[in-house]
Design a protein around this nucleic acid. Sequence first.
DNA 1: ATGGTGGTGTCACCA
Length: 257
Amino acid sequence: MQIATWNVNSLNVRLPHVLAWLETNPVDALALQETKLTDEKFPVDALAETGYRSVFSGQPTYNGVALLARTEPADPVAGIPGFEDPQKRVLAATIDGVRVIGVYCPNGGDLDTDKYAYKLDWFARLHDYLADELARHERLIVLGDYNVAPRPEDTCDPEKWEGRILCSPPERAALQSLLDLGLTDTWRLFDDREGRRRFTWWDYRNGSWARNAGLRIDHILASEPLARVCGECTAHVGERGRKRPSDHVPVIADFAL
DNA sequence: ATGGTGGTGTCACCA
């Protein structure tokens, strides 16, 4: 089973990119973030023509998540149960016997802002939700844009990034608390693989792409039975060099199921 | 220093 995540930064703009990518990478499931579409405007038909069923949870202008799959996603649940939040950031469904939870974690703004406090609180809610889900589902994948670079080597310039937003110790601790539940960051299973590009996001500003000034903030976490059979996790970095790209690229993992 | 959305602003807001 191949499963991928992609923050598309507007599905309205990026739909041609997504359709083309799916044609050459016919993954079993794809989690999208920052669709920036209301549910009425979700491109159900165009995706169906490419062979994908969709479930989605969107809002105008900001946020918005979706799950695409070649089989009908079952038992969809939007949001974190028990957590009232107008920001559409979480969507779960069962795909081919795997419970898949797509997440768009808050960015956090700057360290001294309300957005940062919201980010840390949001991660605590996600933690408790995932604890429940792990108890219910042996096969669980949690994937998306976490807006956290877990280690210095997941940044282009540790001296610059350490302690800043996306890399601060509380954010890293929040991500680690998810792993401590029994989830594996599948990327790190292949840390010793040579020639692999290390980042998943490059800011549109400052010529970040040209300088390869990126971060690894998009992750695919898997429960133990899935991590054991994970054979690959890579970033499709080439997507960042296309015309009118998202600032994130797809991350794809392969499980021998 | 860029890019996307909503919508016409001295654009603001978000990433």
